[in-house]
């Protein structure tokens, strides 16, 4: 084995896996609490990217402010989906399958809307300086370092919020026993709104991290949403660190597979690994088995 290549792939895997971890926690915190398969999560990802691009191009905002505008756009869009679509459906006792179909519809319609408003061309943000650092045989860029640090800082913040704060325990209460949560007077709609804020914020950050290095396209949100879903289930629903570990594992596996296989085989390796893990531990890596 080429150890230099292995080291470089490991670092690349950590960089990619950190974003996957962010996606996993963002999908997981919403799914675990609401049981909604929130495929429209893609809207917050793409919305943040296009929001930042629009703020930069149309409003002429500097890079940092454009990112903040994009972040706000992603969060607002994510929360609006909960308030405008999901909440009224829950009130009418819609099944989770029906809510999923609506979510699917939103995730299909939104890229078309973006295309109508912004056109089909790729969009880019101004590129900040991105020097690279050499660590022996391994190369890493400043943006990669920032992406890793931001991802894990946010994951730690969310995990701490859920475990250590009183409101976080209300989120756990809603996740584990919604009937009892209602019985003690926890406002379910408020909890749902907060988890949509958290989840949408995280995926919006992921969308912006991507767009600062890549391009914004109308359909850019779907693949990361699915990656988040896989990471969350691989790591264990209900566990923030589990979802993060799931995402990191996906990134590393995908990267390491390049040692022996063509790049095209990466997704096959990832899905194969997920299948094997869930076969052995249906509750995921750090998830708890049903009582």
């Amino acid at each position: 084995m080429d150890l230099n290549l292995f080291a470089q792939l490991t670092v690349s895997g950590i960089v990619v896996g950190s974003t996957y971890a962010l996606l996993g926690v963002s999908f997981g915190v919403i799914y675990a609490t609401t049981r909604i398969f929130h495929l429209a999560h893609a809207v917050a990802y793409a919305g943040a990217a296009y929001g930042a691009v629009w703020a930069s191009e149309a409003l002429g905002l500097p890079f940092g402010l454009a990112l903040l505008f994009g972040l706000a756009t992603g969060v607002v869009l994510g929360v609006l989906i909960e308030i405008v679509f999901y909440r009224p459906m829950r009130k009418r006792n819609a099944t989770l399958l029906t809510i999923f179909l609506v979510s699917l519809g939103i995730s299909v319609a939104f890229p078309n809307l973006l295309q109508i408003v912004f056109g089909p061309d790729n969009k880019t943000l101004p590129r900040p300086d991105n020097p690279t650092y050499e660590l022996g045989s391994v190369t890493i860029s400043r943006q990669d370092v920032i992406a890793v640090l931001v991802a894990w800082a946010l994951i730690a913040a969310v995990a701490t919020f859920i475990v250590k704060t009183r409101f976080g325990r209300s989120v756990t209460a809603m996740r584990t026993n919604p009937t009892m949560a209602e019985a003690v007077g926890i406002d379910g709609n408020r909890v749902y709104t907060v988890v949509f804020v958290i989840g949408s914020f995280l995926i919006a950050v992921a969308g912006l991290l991507f767009t600062t290095r890549g391009v914004a396209t109308p359909t850019m949100g779907l693949q990361p949403t699915l990656t988040g879903f896989i990471a969350a289930f691989l790591g264990g629903i209900g566990s923030q660190w589990g979802a993060a570990l799931g995402g990191l594992a996906l990134g590393l596996l995908s990267s390491w597979s390049a040692l022996y296989l063509q790049v095209d085989y990466g997704p096959v390796v990832v899905f194969g690994a997920m299948f094997l893990v869930l076969l052995i531990r249906p509750q995921g890596l750090l998830g708890k088995a049903a009582a």
Partner: peptide
């Protein structure tokens, strides 16, 4: 129901009337 609890009515369900994953003190806090 949230307002009913605030106004002084409580309900204890027949099955799983606790939060199993949380500590006793955290259950009481909720």
């Amino acid at each position: 129901s949230v307002k009913m609890v605030r106004q002084g009515m409580s309900i204890t369900p027949a099955t799983t009337p606790i939060f199993r994953d949380l500590k006793v003190s955290q259950n009481l806090e909720l």
